[in-house]
Write a protein that binds this DNA or RNA. Structure first.
Lengths: 350, 350
DNA sequence: TTGTACGCGTTATCAC
DNA sequence: GTGATAACGCGTACAA
């Protein structure tokens, strides 16, 4: 048994050609005689040769590896077990299809400096995908100064103005959700906001504020509660809002909405009869809750796929950085908002 | 701006030593004069040097990268959004702590041959973690013949007898769950089994069968339904069991249990009054369901962490392959089984 | 169309 | 203790 795997030289010898020719065949270089190519290919197949990626990376400066960073925003990865797995799935689909491998970095909460240090020095990645970064993350600046392409799955925070990103129109989607509640005749429409260090959370609150300001009721800060993307936050926040006599709530995600629903029901009130609720994300749980949740559906998997496609295009020089993609959302009307007739509102924006 | 990053040679020149000495410092080689080491370290720090991992890998044959394969068992990754993220978290914790990176391979359902081919030829991994493999996976044989350490998070299927694995005592845990139901006076205890291509699913059914055979009621195949680790399977299976007049069900996981609960309630029956239900996994949802689910808790994160630790030990030659770890489970008694007094049964096994 | 020869950045094996 | 120098396996000008 051979100590080390076959290399180009071995194949060249067995095929009776030079190492360079084998290399050309392996890399589909055009100007190789068909007959030679076929022969070499056959030898490679027979002997079971695989190129050594480390050696290739050393000379080409490319690894066909992209990194994905999952920051541990406490609540998210543990509680909302939908968003990140789905995102990862979209990312993996795209990397698979284009022959890249995916290096997964799940932030180490116990030692973030060491974690980010390792990540930044780990120069075996052709590009990087950042998902759901807190705008207060202390390592943002270092990440932004990386010499490789970076795309964000979020509207970019500071330092990232020149980078590409893919997002959804959080402001617009929130406005549509709130306007929907208003159109149903609700008079005290509150919101349970998400994490205000998160761009999505910030923009969804902004959408609520704009919609209320434009309404005949105006914006009332007492109708804002919550502050984290968690069921617990929705539960606690809803209890506070109950004292304000609200009759409708726009929750910044479905976890929050589910927590709010629990608080409503525990208070002996009925949803949607007494209080309407609209969520965001369209988790699997949104459909099976009682009542079924009206919610803004966002295409999470496509978000991952689109970001990855942009990244790979930049890596391969097929496109420049600084591109922005805004994916469409859709208001899925079920029972919790109290709309008599189910309908759907779609908004698209390039 | 420099075209390419600094290398050992550059640092050596700036520090007035040879490349070899810098390398020794970087790798903490013992016999370097303290003064020289300090000086070199300072230059490295000042100039911001990072070793080139590809070059290092080329000569050491080691990459400090481990691969994790997530097979797309249809139901699992999409529906049970708890198991894999939690497992990944345990894995990432361990790789982070020991300075490894994690290459994530989510099986491409649309092109599995190409996917596994790429994976197997991708020789940039020092070891591999296989999670939840179907025993019918056609690529098992190829994976088992890999020359690098492999650990399984599951009892091994064929081809893997010599590999290490970490699992739980599924048979024993299922037996305890069933015996618990019997001890509560239930007379027709059924089971909703999981995927029978999955080692966990197989063993949990086996545990049920043994417990029933040992009981005064004996084993009755008509009391077995289901067949997939999904809510849908639990729902459908429970409807079938209802016709058999069962008064208790052991579900092979919590998704199944939740589906079963829905079927029971839709049939106008009460849980636990009319029908007891016990699940498996202790998902977050198990605690918040109504009634709260009695279930077998398994340490998922620890499963990932333990498997990773074993793998890294093998990679680093700290231990041999073929080790087996069986992690303890715990029966968490809540409301759905109908036990009057909450209690806990723990089982540990080395 | 094919072969020769060099360089990519490290580690490791020698001498000194 | 430290410094040359030979691999490691590959891609690619340049020559032929």
């Amino acid at each position: 048994m051979k100590k080390t795997a076959l290399n180009l030289e071995d194949i060249a010898a067995k095929a009776g050609v030079s190492r360079a020719t084998v290399s050309r065949v392996v890399n589909n270089y055009p100007f190789v005689k068909e007959k030679t190519r076929a022969h070499v290919l056959q030898v490679i197949e027979r002997e079971g040769y695989n190129p050594n990626l480390a050696a290739r990376a050393l000379v080409t400066q490319r690894t066909q590896i992209v990194g994905v960073i999952i920051p541990q925003l406490f609540s998210t990865f543990f509680e909302d077990q939908y968003y990140f797995p789905t995102l990862l799935h979209g990312i993996a689909q795209t990397t698979n299809a284009r022959d890249y491998a995916t290096l997964l970095w799940i932030e180490d909460m116990t030692a973030p400096e060491r974690f980010y240090d390792r990540l930044i020095r780990h120069r075996l990645m052709d590009g990087l995908i950042l998902a759901s970064f807190s705008i207060t993350n202390p390592f943002l600046k270092q990440l932004s100064s990386l010499q490789i392409p970076v795309v964000l799955i979020e509207k970019p925070a500071q330092f990232f103005e020149q980078r590409s990103y893919v997002t959804i129109d959080n402001v617009g989607a929130a406005m549509i959700a709130v306007q929907h509640l208003l159109s149903l005749g609700r008079r005290r429409v509150a919101t349970l906001m998400g994490d205000q260090f998160n761009p999505d959370g910030i923009d969804r609150l902004k959408g609520y504020q704009i919609a209320m300001t434009q309404s005949s009721f105006g914006y009332d800060p007492r109708l804002v509660a919550g502050g984290a993307f968690s069921k617990q936050s929705g539960y606690t926040g809803m209890k506070a809002l109950l004292d304000q006599g609200v009759d409708a709530v726009f929750a910044a995600n479905d976890q929050i909405a589910l927590g709010a629903l629990k608080a409503v029901q525990e208070a002996g009130l009925r949803c949607p009869d007494d209080i309407s609720i609209v969520g965001f994300d369209d988790l699997p749980a949104a459909e099976s809750s009682v009542p079924a949740l009206t919610t803004v559906r966002q295409p999470v998997q496509e978000r991952g796929a689109a970001a990855t496609a942009m990244l790979l295009d930049e890596i391969e020089g097929l496109s420049e950085g600084g591109k922005h993609i805004v994916l469409p959302t859709e208001l899925i009307i079920r029972e919790s908002c109290g709309a008599a007739t189910p309908q759907q509102l779609t908004m698209t924006k390039g």
